[in-house]
Design a protein around this nucleic acid. Sequence first.
DNA 1: TTATGGTGATAAAACGTTTTCACATTTTTT
DNA 2: AAAAAATGTGAAAACGTTTTATCACCATAA
Lengths: 339, 339
Amino acid sequence: MLTIKDVARHAGVSVSTVSRVINQVENVSPVIRQKVQYSIKELGYIPNNAARSLVQRQTNAITVLLRNLHSSFFAELIRGMENGAFSSGRNVLFYSLGKDPAYRDQSIQFLTNGVSDAIILYGPLYTDQPIIEHLCAISFPFLLIENNFPTRQTNQFLVNNYEGACHAVEYLSVRGHQRIAYFMGDPNKKVNLDRFNGYTQAMSDRGLIIRDGYLSNIYNSSQAYQAAQKIMRMPAEFRPTAIFCCNDKIAAYAIMGITAMGFSVPKDISVMGFDNHKIPFDDYNGPRISCIQQPLYEMGRDSILAVTDILDGNIETPVVRTYDTTIAEYETVCEPGTP
Amino acid sequence: MLTIKDVARHAGVSVSTVSRVINQVENVSPVIRQKVQYSIKELGYIPNNAARSLVQRQTNAITVLLRNLHSSFFAELIRGMENGAFSSGRNVLFYSLGKDPAYRDQSIQFLTNGVSDAIILYGPLYTDQPIIEHLCAISFPFLLIENNFPTRQTNQFLVNNYEGACHAVEYLSVRGHQRIAYFMGDPNKKVNLDRFNGYTQAMSDRGLIIRDGYLSNIYNSSQAYQAAQKIMRMPAEFRPTAIFCCNDKIAAYAIMGITAMGFSVPKDISVMGFDNHKIPFDDYNGPRISCIQQPLYEMGRDSILAVTDILDGNIETPVVRTYDTTIAEYETVCEPGTP
DNA sequence: TTATGGTGATAAAACGTTTTCACATTTTTT
DNA sequence: AAAAAATGTGAAAACGTTTTATCACCATAA
């Protein structure tokens, strides 16, 4: 293996001088600098990262931790991060955290001890995780995305879920919907509560009434399927003309329930989702689901840049940002009564 | 920062003894071993990876290099790799290689010098790349997937593209198609040549004739669009009843060209692709494309396990494997003349 | 009793960098 | 012309591990 000593010998200078040339430090005369650079190229020398990290106590890498790197939902987020990685000049590693707790702990240990300088964690799935506590405990720099973690002041990017839900109701209402049902996800997750609150607030703001049977608690996909069918069994004059779902998965299963009964979306009922999963799920083959979407690309890009700034001390911490959602218009919403 | 020295002091033993306990080396009495393990837990000590890598000359990590980590095409591959990562016990990092050559070189330098022990590279995009040459030059362990690199003996997973194309022709032919056109991609890529050869061979094996105008060379999406329209302008009695496309992108644009003329796929003509991109492209909204698909999940999983074996010296190198394709039946093929 | 071997533990030398400190040398200031 | 400051360079000490060589100890065998 080629070391800095070889370069020093080859260039006829000391090791420290070579190091200074590599690290762009001042105080080295142009002549010597050139000589060293020549030797480096001539020998094809590349500094060893492990040695460098050891003494510098930093690795120049940021790790992005996702539950499923392969999920299509993350595609935009990752795309943004790739962009951020490029413009930050840092190395961004992606790591997929498994389900097994032991493996997960090992992974975290690995990443936080001489592999990366900071961690970005996309969160909804980790709410209850000791991982964050651990990162705090060892005071390792990290940034949470969409992970509500109220007990501490941490760097976090949030999404305005409340407003997003309001927009959905507004969007439907502007299109003539007055009877809008809501399919709510697990209320233990703050995300779901926020969206629910947005829905109720927007409904009352617009003077729309949440009637009996308009609200369903959904804990799994088959419940979404059944709840949708229950809605369709209501007499037409009371039946909602639209269902706003807490997320795209629920929306997908609701639509499957509806079409299984011979009804059509959006002709017989409009359905709106949240999240913009591009391919929601393997067994779903219906129309693309109109939904509220998070600005994942921007959040991904910004997260890398923010962490870079945090590491460089160029920004005040904690960094807390809230992102607004937008509406993705696809094929599952139309005006009620459209032939 | 907590070091091994602190543990040694706390346990009242030497540094080397602690190291031996950590690394599961023999020659340490049960009593002392327990004492040390207790101290480690008590203090919450975690060994520093940089220091460890430095002296051991290995990092215990494998890096997977992809061009676009966010591409839906890679989803299955990644899923397989995640699985492999878990069962191999090694840490698998994913890295997204940008388009900028300078950034790419920096990335490779980073990864190969004290960050990971091996690299897996999914290849079709790198055929002409100096990256591989560089990895060879520094004799860094790596495995190529779907990257034909004939000049050297390297670890590689290949896909039987030739047979895949044969299967496609067979599949179409069994469904009654006799006039089958072929849209070929850049013939400088071996992948495309293999598929083309499979097509011609299968055609002749089945006694099917490749008529004038049945073969198109496609270099970009608009060419696919236009070539498809040219096909549709042929008199119905000569016109192919099916087009087999070299990849899904070409298929998608072909279908767009066809439908733009008012024809319908597969009613008026069947189209078959290759690769199984789940969401091919943003401007495509047609039916899901029937195609030949690679066993990406298996290849992903196996690649991690193979590299693990290579690093551990448990397998003979070079590791060369060829995977067979399967047929993904979706919505763009039917029997000719189906109403 | 004295060699001989085998254990279990330690001290010290790596590993390849960066960085501090000291030391010339040169330039600037008085 | 002397003193002070600035500049460029190198020697050596870190950084936190693993690993090699060594040593002390005890049991066994001669």
